[in-house]
């Protein structure tokens, strides 16, 4: 009898194996495949590494517990991105509630928001383009969550419009509109980078 190499299987085949036989090895492969893309996606959305790790782990736990709710008509990536996106939005709302005091008053005249410094591990600091990366991340954090999600999925995760539409549960036209508006806002916020 030949041994199945799980690494050769597609995501959909792996989740079906996990659904039918409760094969932990199949789940482990899925975790390996998706942990970094999801970390990248959620980090860009939240801007907080610790919270991002928790959200991605929670996503994996949900996949494990609710594996039977996945239907093979959809792509596995769409399903897992939807879960992660919903959890990230919930976390973002929680973070907003946690901010007891607002420091908007400091920048009220200029209509600017000051970010509370995040002292947790920041991967961007370790690279040469760290400062630029940080500026872009701050700009991403300033655009509205709906536009932010669309822009990240398109320009950071490089997903197709159709996939983004499925993940966000909106039409392709709306996806394109949101991406455009998000990009426009980003361009405005990052003007000074292009001057340099």
């Amino acid at each position: 009898m030949t041994e199945i190499n799980f690494n050769d299987l597609t995501d959909e085949e792996l989740i079906i194996k996990f659904q039918n036989n409760n094969t932990i090895a199949a789940f482990e492969i899925l975790v390996k495949r998706y942990k970094n893309p999801l970390m990248n996606y959620v980090f860009r959305f939240l801007g907080d590494y610790e919270a991002c790790t928790d959200v991605v782990q929670e996503t994996m736990i949900k996949v494990y517990r609710y594996k039977d709710s996945y239907q093979s008509i959809a792509k596995f990536s769409t399903w897992i991105y939807t879960i992660a996106g919903n959890l990230a939005k919930t976390e973002l709302q929680r973070q907003r509630r946690r901010k007891i005091f607002s420091i908007n008053a400091f920048g009220a005249e200029k209509d600017e928001n000051y970010e509370i410094p995040d002292n947790s591990y920041r991967p961007d600091v370790e690279t040469d383009s760290g400062i630029k990366d940080e500026i872009i991340q701050k700009a991403i954090s300033k655009i509205s969550p709906a536009y932010r999600q669309a822009v990240i999925l398109r320009d950071v995760q490089e997903l197709s419009y159709e996939e983004i539409a499925d993940i966000m549960e909106i039409t392709v036209g709306t996806v394109k509109s949101r991406i455009n508006r998000g990009r426009a806002q980003l361009q405005k916020l990052l003007k000074h980078i292009y001057k340099d």
């Binding site: 942990k35 970094n36 970390m39 990248n40 980090f43 860009r44 590494y49 991002c52 790790t53 991605v56 991967p123 961007d124 690279t127 383009s129 630029k132 990366d133 872009i136 991340q137 822009v151 320009d155 950071v156 490089e158 455009n180 990009r183 426009a184 980003l186 361009q187 990052l190 980078i193 292009y194």
Partner: peptide
């Protein structure tokens, strides 16, 4: 119209678990 922004976003460092 957004080539600059798109390139900047694509060049962002990849975050790892």
């Amino acid at each position: 119209n957004f080539i600059g922004v798109i390139n900047e976003l694509k060049k962002l460092n990849k975050i790892e678990a």
